[in-house]
Write a protein that binds this DNA or RNA. Structure first.
Lengths: 209, 209
DNA sequence: TTTTGTTTTAACCATATGGTTGAATCAAAA
DNA sequence: TTTTGATTCAACCATATGGTTAAAACAAAA
């Protein structure tokens, strides 16, 4: 037998990565198995040799896309830090994660929109539970008069929006601002530097450098 | 002949609306002509009687989805108002538009992502031109020290993000915050009331009620 | 009544696509 | 050398789907 064991046979990985790229770019129905095979540099038979069906392959890509992003995030919200530091920390780390996986949000949200039941809701409910303490912290600080006067949920939605949407809206922004790819990368780089401060400043009331 | 002229024959409209709903929910490839026919309460033959092909029908839905949203928005940016009022005005009106068309953003962005050439870029370039004066206004106020110290483009992206993303991320937010549909509508209603103030307060420096 | 455009019905075609199969090849491990 | 799993190749199947067609029914306008 050829190389095997240790890391999953590199072809299996090649197939998965090809599938991930194509599925994320074109969605479930928009994807052709042949295209995945081509991109992986193998033939269609081998696809089914490793992953029995399109559904199975998609499911794996979908689940792993979610798992790759979500747990990292919620853990950031549970660290024991004062609010402003936590906001800064969360913003920076989250931006790094999403910069490393810029196609995942649109992918997940489109598939979720098409088929709301596919995503196991308990997965998100877990997230919900982990988010509660953070919301509580926001409410506490709000009561002390340290934050802007806004429901905690609205604040969180504002933060998530500013973090994620630029990547989803990228093609629109690039045309409107007349940016080529390099310019947009630069724009994101700049954003990584400036956004933490902006978020802290807009959520917390006064005196925070 | 049956009723005709005046408004386009009501079946033609029925078909278009059915197509719009299905295309926006499932995307181009995810949509079956049969499903459109069913939803419109007619049969497949009649689809092709009015719209020759799936492509043609989709194109019409796609273009009109864009046209319905984009021009309204840019006009809001060119009104002759002081910055804080313009921000308030823009936020309120934009939210109304998007509340009336909550499915359009994800639809456009997914299709745009799949096929960047389908959208005539000159359309967005027009938007770009119309946005320039607003960016310039932002820069002027920034120079006067009236706004937060952030590039105009970053500010605009922040605003657009907070306006649009809640609708794209709706299914996620609903689970995380444990909201049923009614609760989420309420959340958006509340947002419409609070967001203009938050945006002004976070973009403009101090003393603005 | 005739005409004309609308709508249904039902059968049908061509194609793309997911998936299968079986034989052949190949390379490494035993 | 034998064995075994990986991989290719080519042909093939079943199905879904977009699209067509022709005939008939229908309803309003002329």
């Amino acid at each position: 037998m050829k190389e095997n064991k240790e890391e999953q046979s590199s072809t299996e990985l090649k197939i998965f990565e090809a599938a991930r790229d194509v599925f994320q770019a074109k969605g479930l129905e928009g994807t052709r198995m042949q295209e995945i095979a081509d991109r992986a540099g193998i033939n269609k038979s081998l696809l089914h040799y490793y992953y029995r069906s399109k559904e199975k392959l998609f499911e794996k890509v979908y689940q792993l896309s979610i798992i790759r992003v979500i747990p990292q995030i919620v853990s950031l919200l549970n660290e024991d830090l004062p609010l402003d530091q936590k906001l800064r920390n969360f913003t920076e780390k989250y931006l790094e994660i999403i910069i490393a996986n810029p196609d995942i949000p649109l992918f997940i949200l489109h598939e979720l929109n098409k088929n709301p039941t596919r995503l196991k809701t308990f997965m998100l409910q877990e997230v919900g539970k982990k988010v509660q303490p953070f919301l509580e912290q926001l409410r506490q600080e709000s009561k002390k008069g340290n934050t802007v006067d806004l429901p905690a949920e609205q604040i969180l939605v504002n933060i998530m929006s500013m973090l994620i949407f630029p990547f989803i809206g990228r093609p629109v922004f690039q045309v409107i601002f007349d940016m080529d790819d390099a310019a947009f990368e630069q724009f994101i780089f700049e954003r990584k530097r400036l956004l933490p401060g902006f978020i802290v400043q807009s959520v917390m009331k006064s005196n925070h450098s």
